[in-house]
């Protein structure tokens, strides 16, 4: 059984701040889930290999070359159905979703005193 303190430790590891009123509830829930999934221990898996990929896929490598920057051309109805490799997104496109920025820079809290 995990205590509320142990749940708090997990939350800290996962960078979550659990609402005080939710803490006892989530402690009960997490314990019931862990208790339920622990039934796997009853299954004999000696000699069984752990699955790593369902179709045995392996790494896909490419040349170590500079990739183009920009955006793939927009698709057109009944246009070329080939899926183009997505170029690296340019920084302006990415910056549009940054919640706090200054010019072309992302604002972050002070990290080094």
């Amino acid at each position: 059984m995990l205590s509320e303190e142990e749940i708090q430790k997990l939350a800290t590891l996962a960078r979550l701040e659990i609402e005080p009123s939710f803490k006892p509830v989530v402690t009960t829930h997490v314990n019931s889930i862990i208790g339920y999934v622990a039934r796997l221990n009853e299954i004999d898996t000696s000699g069984i290999e752990a699955l790593s990929h369902i179709q045995g896929a392996t790494n896909v490598l490419r040349e170590d070359a500079v990739q183009p920057v920009g955006a793939a051309a927009d698709p057109t109805p009944l246009g070329d159905p080939t899926i183009p490799p997505q170029p690296m997104l340019d920084s302006d496109a990415l910056a549009r979703n940054v919640p706090a920025s200054s010019g072309r820079f992302i604002k972050v809290p002070l990290i080094v005193e």
């Binding site: 955006a71 793939a72 927009d74 698709p75 057109t76 109805p77 009944l78 246009g79 070329d80 159905p81 899926i83 997505q86 997104l89 496109a93 990415l94 549009r96 979703n97």
Partner: peptide
């Protein structure tokens, strides 16, 4: 707001 389409969206758009 995503800066790109998922491949499945791209495929549907190409299909019309």
């Amino acid at each position: 707001i995503p800066p790109y389409d998922a491949t499945v969206v791209r495929r549907l758009k190409t299909a019309g």
